[in-house]
């Protein structure tokens, strides 16, 4: 299946070596943003060029790849990246979280718990958690180096002062292994507790040329105040298709008369539950 015009997994071996070095350094210093020489990829910035490069550097011919876009396996970004690697690496693809050895994701962590040996690759638009608080990159780097993170709490303070609660709902800042404050890419804060995982988590930001990582079983703490503790929030509803109470939900508008349903954002999780006989409130009807 591999197109002979391409090297395995698209990137040349020197580039993969360079990226692997950055990954290893990232794993050695959890949460630290390692600069790397991001390559031009055959897709626009913002479509996962960082994640694709990290995935390409990790893939072996024996791997099984799953690609997620906002929890779904069948949206444009997921389909095109999956096809890209099927064509350039010839690896097997799957939609089932449990069967995948490498999972590239955008904006979600799968509901099915990850296991040892799996690699979760995130596409990251903005790796710097302090970006919109301190505009100078030289200064943010110094702040990371000196563990000068008071400003991060100022952001949360502003949230509470203005909205009565911490309203940051995605890209919720975390502290990794008691040292670096990290942006977990724009995953909903519902997914933050899942950042403590047996799987290896790698974050690639192509435009910003940064790679960072959370090794398995690393302590990841969401920042909060003593009197306003972190809360992993989701829509207060059950999935209308599979009836799941504990999964992150998307609100889908179904008509122009205010009709809406809540469905699992993780399509594989939802399909798996329905195959197992679970039914939600609207499952009998033909929705979507």
């Amino acid at each position: 299946m591999t197109d002979a015009a391409y090297n395995f997994a698209y990137l040349d071996e020197q580039t993969k070596r360079m990226i692997r070095r950055a990954i290893l350094k990232g794993v050695a210093i959890p949460g630290y943003q390692v600069p790397f020489a991001s390559r031009e990829m055959p897709m626009p910035y913002g479509w996962g060029t960082g994640g694709v490069q990290v995935t390409a550097a990790c893939l072996t011919p024996a791997d099984t790849l799953k690609v997620i876009d906002q929890g779904a396996d069948d949206t444009t970004n997921a389909v095109s990246i999956r096809r890209f690697f099927q064509r350039t690496a010839g690896v097997a693809a799957t939609e089932r979280t449990a069967e995948a050895s490498v999972i590239q994701t955008r904006h979600r962590i799968p509901e099915t718990p990850l296991t040892e040996g799996q690699i979760l690759v995130y596409q990251v638009p903005i790796p710097e958690p302090l970006r919109f608080l301190e505009p100078r990159e030289t200064e943010t780097r110094r702040m990371h180096a000196l563990e000068d993170y008071g400003l991060m709490h100022v952001k949360l303070y502003e949230d509470i002062a203005r909205n009565g609660a911490i309203s940051t709902a995605y890209a919720y800042p975390v502290k990794v292994e008691g040292r670096y404050v990290m942006d977990p890419s724009p995953v909903p804060k519902f997914d933050n507790p899942k950042l403590e995982s047996p799987a290896i988590q790698l974050f690639g930001a192509g435009r910003e040329q940064r790679i960072y990582a959370i090794p398995p079983y690393t302590r990841v703490v969401s920042l909060d105040f003593e009197d306003h503790p972190f809360e992993a929030s989701k829509a207060d509803h059950a999935c209308d298709l599979c009836g799941a109470e504990e999964s992150y939900l998307d609100e889908v508008i179904t008509d122009d008369a205010g009709g809406r349903i809540f469905v699992c954002s993780d399509t594989d999780f939802c399909a798996g539950r329905r195959a197992g006989g679970h039914r939600g409130a609207l499952a009998a009807e033909d929705v979507a």
Binding site: D148, Y149, G150, L151, H153, V154, Y157, E158, I160, A161, R162, F225, E226, D227, H228
Partner: peptide, 20 residues
């Protein structure tokens, strides 16, 4: 950042973690 956040920044920088 609001006036309160400006005043609170130094407190948070030295470890204050109680919003009230």
């Amino acid at each position: 950042i609001s006036a309160g956040g400006n005043v609170g920044e130094r407190l948070m920088a030295v470890g204050a973690r109680h919003y009230g």
